[in-house]
């Protein structure tokens, strides 16, 4: 059930992995668990369980609003562990995506330990860089969690090498300079950033920020190992479970190279 095993499978099948994001507790803790399970049942290979946070500087309006809703509905940090536990118990793979202060406040070692016991595989840290990691790499390593850092179009070659070297499981490449949110077209920088990262690492590379359609997923699967979709799932979750399942199904077809035949979902 490791991330390594997941990518061995998708590579063997000659396709990209589909990674879906949803904040835990959105709109309630129980709803979030149900939606994440539905995402895995309908085509996601891995889910990113987001930690709703008061100051999400890397997020656009869709995810900001979802985090606000979750916090207003009483989300507590401990709910992220029970959410991961539910996903793992259903046979799904989960990593956590979190701004770093909640981890720091909880205690980095304690957070790593509790997440590993819940069945989580790793953590994506959008506002933590490995050269100032507040003890995270050591704590994650000790708990057997993968450390997924981000590279951006603006990252220098030196920084890509440093970041890739500190990462495990996969490397997260940001498709564009900007915040999260569905975008109509994929930027040219996406493929270039992945190609630059390839020169520094053997790790699988996941591409996120702005992907929402089967067609884009197919395109991304042509050059990246995983396609990460966030805001589009959050929007669908705001509509219905059926919308979430439909989106996961279409994107799953996309990462298998069948996107061109599928209509664009999301508006």
């Amino acid at each position: 059930m490791t991330l390594q095993a997941l990518f061995d499978t998708t590579h063997a099948e000659g396709r990209g992995a589909l990674v879906g994001y949803l904040p835990a507790g959105y709109p309630t803790v129980a709803d979030g668990k149900r939606t994440l399970t539905a995402m895995l049942e309908s085509g996601c290979d891995l889910v990113e369980v987001g930690v709703p946070y008061s100051d999400p500087v890397m997020d656009g309006p869709t995810i900001q609003a979802a985090a606000d809703t979750a916090l207003r509905n009483g989300f507590r940090l401990a709910d992220v562990f029970s959410t991961v536990e539910t996903v793992a118990a259903a046979g799904g793979r989960a990593v956590v995506m979190t701004y770093f202060n909640p981890v720091h406040r909880y205690g980095v070692e304690r957070f790593a330990r509790d997440l590993a016991s819940a069945g989580g595989l790793g953590v994506i840290t959008p506002d933590l860089v490995p050269d100032d990691d507040a003890g995270w790499c050591a704590a994650a390593g000790a708990a057997g969690l993968d450390r997924i850092f981000l590279v951006a179009p603006s990252s220098s070659e030196e920084r890509i090498a440093l970041t890739a070297n500190a990462s495990s499981g996969f490397l997260y490449a940001a498709a564009v300079m900007g915040v999260t949110g569905a975008r109509a077209t994929l930027s040219d920088t996406a493929a270039e950033t992945v190609a630059r990262a390839r020169r520094h690492t053997q790790l699988p590379i996941g591409l996120g920020l702005g992907v929402r359609s089967a067609q884009q997923a197919a395109e991304v699967a042509g050059f990246a190992d995983a396609v990460i979709v966030g805001s589009a799932f959050v929007t669908a979750a705001g509509e219905s479970e059926a919308a979430v399942r439909a989106l996961a199904g279409e994107l799953a077809a996309g990462v298998r190279g069948r996107g061109a035949m599928t209509s664009t979902v999301g508006k």
Partner: peptide, 12 residues
């Protein structure tokens, strides 16, 4: 202190 910031801004 330090830099708890997105990688995208480290270059700047």
């Amino acid at each position: 202190g330090g830099r708890f910031m997105p990688e995208a801004l480290i270059g700047a």
